Simulated assay, not measured.
Amino acid sequence: MNAVNKNVTNGILMILSFWLIFVFGLLFYPPIYWTFVLPEIFWIKQCMMTLLMAIIFFLNYFYFTPNVLLKRKYLLFSLIIIALTIALLGASFFFESTYNIRRQINVLNNVPTRKLPQFFDGLVTLSSILMIGVSTSFSVFKKLQKQTQESSDLQKQNLNAELSFLKAQINPHFFFNTLNSIYSLSYTDIEKSRSALQTLSRMMRYILYDSSENKTNLMQEIAFINDHISLMRLRLNDNVKIIFINSTLQVDHKIAPMILMPFIENAFKYGVSVNEKAEIIISLQVENNKLSLKVINTRFDQSNSKQPESYGIGLSNTKRRLELIYPGQYELHIDDNGFNKHFKVELTLELV
């Protein structure tokens, strides 16, 4: 009973933490630092959109995922996602068109009135997908937790690895920052922002659907990595040099989904500095059913004093997953020499 209460408490804390980050980090924090004046109706709209997104989140968490997605009604679940997204777009358009929020902002800041509000809003669309994606992951996570408690010790070990994978599938921090970058980009380069939205949408689709099995196509995994790198280029300045070397696959292979991403995410998380020049080199080669991944990034020991410890936690979890899925079929070497200016990870994996 104590374990059940602990799981329930952890689940509630995860959901509350997500909502605090989402509400403050995406809907309220960026406008606070905008240089122009915002009318009261703008903040009312943000509160109402937050409420609607919360309703969507918990509807999907408690009902749609357990009763539709987990019962393999994939087409119906897709239609539900589309309907919920359209409902959010409609609510946003209602506020914009009824109260002329954009026009009020322009009047308060002595800016010429722009075009009329459009029904499609990229930020609202991606926010809706994010809500459904995260709530789906939490709901599946909850389902798997219950199964873990009822299984044997070996089953518990395998399911815990799967749960860790599901928790790592969606990185809210990455999506929040990317959405903010795209939102800013929409004011300067519409075509580039649309392309970025399409890329992020493709990544969400892969995470929610294509990576749900035990194995996925390596070509799809590489395409996901390439999309991740292209979106990171939007967020980073010219001080960061990114090199991605990728061999052309003649034959596709099967691989455990998201098994390579932690190494790449760590490089972007800890190998980037605001003021200093940085370099991230990613090399992914496949030859004779053997995959070789090499990730090298610049070290910033002074600005990231806890870097080695943080790296250890993330990479130890990934190593545990490699041990469960590829026992005796991989080699992992990590060069974390304090006298070296670079952090290097080399992974060799047998693809069978």
Rank of each mutant, 00 (worst) to 15 (best):
Q157N: 02
L159Y: 04
L159H: 02
N160T: 03
A161R: 00
S164I: 08
F165N: 07
F165P: 00
Q169Y: 09
I170F: 15
P172A: 08
H173K: 15
H173E: 15
H173T: 15
F174E: 14
F175W: 14
F176Q: 03
N177R: 05
T178G: 04
L179E: 08
N180H: 02
S181E: 12
S181F: 02
I182E: 07
S184I: 01
L185K: 03
I190C: 02
K192D: 11
S193L: 13
R194M: 13
R194D: 09
S195A: 15
S195Q: 14
Q198C: 04
T199F: 03
T199L: 08
L200T: 11
L200K: 09
L200M: 15
S201L: 13
M203D: 11
M203L: 05
M204I: 13
M204S: 13
Y206E: 05
I207A: 11
L208E: 11
D210Y: 01
S211G: 01
S211K: 10
E213R: 10
E213C: 03
N214F: 12
N214E: 14
T216K: 08
N217T: 12
L218E: 03
Q220G: 15
F224A: 06
I225R: 07
N226S: 14
N226Y: 08
D227Y: 05
H228V: 01
H228D: 00
H228K: 07
S230H: 09
L231V: 03
M232D: 06
R233Q: 11
R235E: 01
